[in-house]
Each structure stands twice: as structure tokens, then as C-alpha cells.
Design a protein around this nucleic acid. Structure first.
Length: 274
DNA sequence: CCTTGTGTTCTCCG
DNA sequence: CCGGAGAACACAAG
């Protein structure tokens, strides 16, 4: 934080907004003064006190901070997860889409194998519009039981789609939606409007603990992901249903099923989840 | 063919 | 015809 951005290299035009020439002009000479987050969106405040650098990692995005091209920090430990991991080697590499060079010669690389993620520069007004689209978020003061009920009330879509809808509840992705529904004993395809008061309370009750444990375990990862301390993500070993199709349920020993709900791979226990 | 998060587009309903 | 909800599609690449 606070280091002057001497140079900005855009290797993939479509990974940035606005167009690379403007993007580079807006960023060069500035510094990143603070980092914030809403849902799965990272928000860096810029030193001009006017603009913000938004970073969305989507599925495979990573921010890698390097000094002398020696990796000192990698990936992210927020609610999203990385399907690829940084395993060392040359930077920039074939997955590098953008990188910043700071005045002290350190580098910040944005790597993104599948190019879904992006870096975007917006002003305060645009940021406010974007922030307004996010619903209540676990671990924040707004995530109260009554707000949770309000978010579900009157919704006819299935409960899994609702959990994934960032405008209602922000921060949950496909893995944690499945895990939360398992922990609460609710079938993913159930219409939200069919949930009893007790079921909604159970669901509310499990979400914060789930997110807390995930953060504590440094996120969910599948490969050789390294965090800022060089540790691997660990939550993957504690997943109860996600990725465990045909394996045995940890509660009842029955087989975990995999179906498609809301267009996404969905894992659940037909016996434990009603 | 599958995988994901989210923006866009389409369709339905009142 | 309008607005909202929700579903479907698009995107990228391994």
C-alpha cells in the first residue's frame, strides 16, 4: 500500500476497463492507499481520492505480489476460491493479464487463466451504484435474522439460486451455497417460499459459522495455491457435500447426489436434506 | 461435453 | 404496455 505505481502493463485488453490506454493513464503515478471488499469484489482506493480500482477474481483470478520476481504473496483468502494455484516460476507468465510495477521495483501481477476476472477503474459515483446492488453480507452488521427473512420473503425461486443471488445475499458462491444447505438440512431445489420459519432460522444459523470456518481455514482450494504466508488453502478437506458425489454422507453414510440446480452443479444428501 | 460468477437478454405474469 | 421476477444464455479455456 502507498507505493507509487511507476508502470502499468496490460497484456490482455479485455481484462481491463476502460480501454488499456485510458486504464494505464488513470493508474500510472498513483498509489493504492486502502483495500476494501464487498461480496466477491475487491476495492482499492487510489491516491487521487477520486477513483477506485475494482478487482474481480471470478473463478481463476489471482493477485500475486512479488519482490524481485521472487514470490512473497499469492492468491487471495476471501470468500471466492481459486481453482488454479500459483506454484512459483517466472512472472509474468502465460496467465498474466495485467501487472503493476511500483517505485521500489516490486510487482503486482493479475493472473487469470480463464480471463473471466477483470480490473476496472471507476469514480465514486459509479462505485456507489455498484455497491448498492449488493445484498446483506454474512459477518457484517446488516446480516441479521430479520434482514435474512426479508431477503427470502416472497421469493419463488429455489433456495440455492437465492443464496447465489448477490443482490439478496452477497458473498456466497456455489461451494458454500451447497455446504450451507447441507448444514441446514434443506434441499437445494426447494422453492424459497416453501421454507418453514424453523428452516429459514436453521439456514441463517449455519451461514456465519460456515464462512468463519472457511476464512479460518484460508479458503477453499484444489491445487497448489499458496497464500501470503505460503500456506495452502485447507477448507477443501472439510467440505461435507461439494465435490463428494457418490461418496458417503458424513451424517448418515448414505450416498451424496449431484444434480443441476440454478444451472450449477449441486451436491446434496437426499436422506439428510428435506 | 463439463466447470464458475455475473452481466445481459429473454420470457412470463399481473 | 410496463415492471418485476426469474430463467436462460453468454462469456473463456482447460
Amino acid at each position: 500500500m502507498g507505493k507509487n505505481i511507476k508502470q502499468v502493463e496490460v497484456l490482455a485488453a479485455k481484462s481491463v476497463w476502460p480501454i488499456p490506454k485510458k486504464f494505464v493513464n488513470l493508474l500510472t503515478g498513483q498509489s493504492l492507499v486502502a483495500i476494501d471488499r464487498i461480496g466477491k469484489l475487491l476495492i482499492f482506493s487510489l491516491s487521487d481520492k477520486k477513483n477506485y480500482l475494482l478487482v474481480h477474481l471470478k473463478m481463476t483470478g489471482q493477485l500475486i505480489y512479488a519482490i524481485n520476481h521472487k514470490l512473497v504473496a499469492g492468491g487471495h483468502s476471501l470468500s471466492a476460491q481459486s481453482l488454479i494455484g500459483y506454484v512459483g516460476g517466472e512472472l509474468p507468465n502465460r496467465s498474466t493479464r495485467v501487472y503493476l510495477i511500483f517505485s521500489d521495483k516490486s510487482h503486482l501481477f493479475f493472473n487469470d487463466q480463464r480471463r473471466f476476472g477483470y480490473l476496472k477503474i471507476v469514480d465514486q459515483a459509479s462505485l456507489a451504484v455498484i455497491k448498492a446492488k449488493y445484498g446483506i453480507e454474512p459477518l457484517t452488521p446488516n446480516f441479521t435474522k430479520s434482514n435474512f427473512f426479508l431477503a427470502i420473503k416472497g421469493r419463488t425461486k429455489n433456495i440455492k439460486a437465492l443464496l447465489l443471488d448477490q443482490s439478496l445475499i452477497s458473498g456466497l458462491g456455489n461451494i458454500y451455497a451447497d455446504e450451507a444447505l447441507f448444514a441446514a438440512g434443506i434441499r437445494p431445489a426447494r422453492r424459497a417460499s416453501s421454507l418453514s420459519k424453523a428452516e429459514i432460522e436453521r439456514l441463517y444459523g449455519v451461514i456465519e459459522g460456515l464462512i468463519r470456518r472457511a476464512i479460518k481455514a484460508r479458503g477453499t482450494t484444489f491445487n497448489n495455491y499458496l497464500d501470503a504466508q505460503g500456506n495452502k488453502g485447507g477448507f477443501v478437506v472439510k467440505l461435507a457435500v461439494y465435490g463428494r458425489s457418490k461418496e458417503l454422507c458424513l451424517k448418515c453414510q448414505g450416498p451424496i447426489k449431484k444434480i443441476k440446480v440454478a444451472g450449477r452443479g449441486t451436491h446434496f444428501c437426499p436422506n439428510c436434506q428435506k
